[in-house]
Design a protein around this nucleic acid. Structure first.
Lengths: 200, 200
DNA sequence: TGGATGCTCCGTGTATACAAGGTGTCCACA
DNA sequence: TGTGGACACCTTGTATACACGGAGCATCCA
């Protein structure tokens, strides 16, 4: 529900969310709000503490680093398998890269972040393991909130991202696992470094 | 809630669960039952199809194989990191192995399956990445249902499991990443093979 | 006799009322 | 004046009643 969207940036970390207030704002009753909050807990947006309610989770720099490590573990594995089986880059890759560059030129950062995610997600899916793909995608919501912060602070990074996507596609098509992994490693290490730069 | 326990073995795959009936059986109202079903969806036990209700998911052989692949990806990564940093086996490992052997002697298969999971889980946690650890543990519920089937069919495997756990602990203490990974690979490949043997 | 359409029933989705528990404040006593 | 206890209010957890939508069956027409 829209609850997720609302949470993306509008509530303070650590804040307790009042079901009745949310219900009034959304124009519905408490029941759907409760269900939305439970979904948000599953997505690690909030902690549901008994008899107290839903507390907006603080995403620490440590957790963010761990999320990117997790991404690397899953995506590097996918890349390895893709190169082993000589599958080449995913068929959707070219158009996603194209769209990403368009979004970059238009400075549409929302679209940019979404396309970036879809690019990486389709690589993981290309491996053919739905369980791993679903796990990978489940990391997304937690990255979104961060994305809002990073985008506003470091837009000069975008050309780099675009270039690395193209390089990764080429490396996959060349079935070069070691090169692909190196590119991915650099690509995924930039963001945590940016985060650390903010928070320290 | 107990809903999870109920589901562990009592409902047919593909069956639609009636909220009112469940509520009556548990002795509560529909509201908590609904919440439980939503949690079960998050744990991939059921599919919530709109206006139809909660359908018990069929866990296919393919999905099971993918789950074990996912386990291998995460746990092998953990092993690699543990050996790199020369951390050695987790401190809880010896007592878990001990308890596992006791459970095996007593033919307490429920306890056995649980301890097996805890052993592997603590290896992943030993790496220190909570996000990956949580992902790894989230695979557990789907394996439980299978465990019931496998245990009844192949109890002769248990000494092998115990031996491999001991070998893995030793390899971790020797900081031997490649040996540890080989042991894990064999260890995790047995179950999917067993599954395939049943379902084909 | 087969297919399509409409009706009815059943089950989920939502709203609201009630119960229970916790937190914060206020007052009394040391 | 500070601390401890009790009470009241507020918020979550649960129950129940109502609305909405779909699925299945029966009937009618070709």
């Amino acid at each position: 529900m829209i609850g997720a969207a609302i949470l993306a940036g509008t509530f303070a970390e650590g804040e307790f969310l009042d079901e009745a207030v949310l219900a009034r704002e959304v124009g519905t009753s408490r029941t759907p709000v409760r269900e939305a909050l439970h979904r948000l807990q599953a997505e690690r947006f909030v902690d549901l503490v008994p008899r107290r309610g839903a507390q907006v989770r603080v995403v620490t720099a440590t957790e963010m680093r761990q999320i990117y490590q997790a991404r690397f573990v899953i995506e590097a594995n996918a890349i390895g398998k893709i190169c082993d089986r000589r599958l080449g880059a995913p068929p959707e890759a070219p158009e996603l890269i194209e769209a990403l560059e368009t979004a970059g030129r238009n400075q549409d950062w929302n679209e940019f972040a979404q396309l970036d995610q879809r690019f990486h997600s389709c690589i993981v899916q290309h491996q053919g393991n739905a369980v791993l793909a679903q796990m990978y995608d489940s990391l997304r919501p937690r990255q979104v909130r961060l994305a809002v912060r990073t985008i506003t602070q470091g837009p000069e990074r975008f050309p780099t991202i675009e270039r690395e996507h193209r390089e990764l596609e080429a490396a996959l098509n060349a079935h070069d696992a070691s090169l692909s992994t190196r590119i991915l490693n650099v690509h995924l290490q930039e963001v945590p470094e940016l985060v650390r730069a903010f928070s320290e």
